[in-house]
Amino acid sequence: MSTASSDAAAQFSGRQQSALQRVQNALHLYPWISPLVILILSFIAFTILNPRFATAGSMGLLIQQMAIVAALAIGQTLVILTAGIDLSVGAITVLAMMVMATLAKDGGMPGLLALIIGVGLATLAGLLNGILVTRMKLPPFIVTLGTLSIFTAIALLYSGGSSIQASHLPAFLNWLGKGFSIGGLRLTYGVLLVILLYAVVGFVLSQTAWGRHVYAVGDEPEAARLSGVPSRRVLLQVYTVAGFIYGIAAWALIGRSGAATPNAIPTANLDSITAVVIGGTSLFGGRGRLIGTLIGAIIVQTFAFGLSLAGVNQQWRLLAIGLLVIIAVSIDQWIRKVK
């Protein structure tokens, strides 16, 4: 709330701003600027450290490695925009993946049918999160902490805890691991699907009424409700859509790993949250852009890949990511104070 200082009160347009305030305002409008700057700087730095970094071959590998986390981070972005958090990202993905693979291998089910059931199950898992958050009024942190264990347990119990190699699976379930090359840049169909997901969800968030409602519910749920936004329904839909996206990511993950393994993606939760936060989306909800999340996911992978190409110990990557998270959240706190 602004102060009552009378002459500043009604005059926005003519106000003098310092350079720092202008930066603050720009970041407030475009929160993905700072991660983009970090990404460009780290690209330059890693290319100087090892020229092999900036080759088409390296880029193709980098993109493939970041694609799964980038996909999961879409769902995580939706949830975090509503001021929630999803700790069951990895659990839902693994559950969907193991169910798809087990149905196809042991049940002899066609790949497409197994995929539909797996994605459907992930969507239901998201819906369950949503119901617990909206109907039982439980904090998202607690709900997804609980379902994290539950879904992991179900995945392990159902699959018997063992991996299923791609050679035992129908080609359809592996298809996203296949790809093509443009010059030396190798891309998989999984990467293309993730890019498509970004385009669709990005469009929905920025161009449709539902997108506006997601931001409104995340920023001021009560004001949104009083304005006529069906807050609970929007929240429920967010968790459900997130579950669906995790299901699609599970499909891409089978292609990427060449197998369905219960421990295929052990750091999914923290990696997806890290991508969202580094991408400039506020953990307090209502602020952020999906493009920022994509940049955040690329940054994380750039550090991993760049540092290993530079021959640096991987622990430095952890340290760098940790610093980036803290810097990103500090910037968010700062731009939220914009006047």
């Binding site: 409602h213 931001y215 409104a216 920023d219 001021e220 949104a224 602020r287």
Partner: peptide, 14 residues
């Protein structure tokens, strides 16, 4: 109002 949204979005919210 919703602070994070712009003026037009607020006017037309819902």
């Amino acid at each position: 109002v919703i602070p994070a949204l712009d003026i037009a979005s607020n006017l037309y919210l819902a």
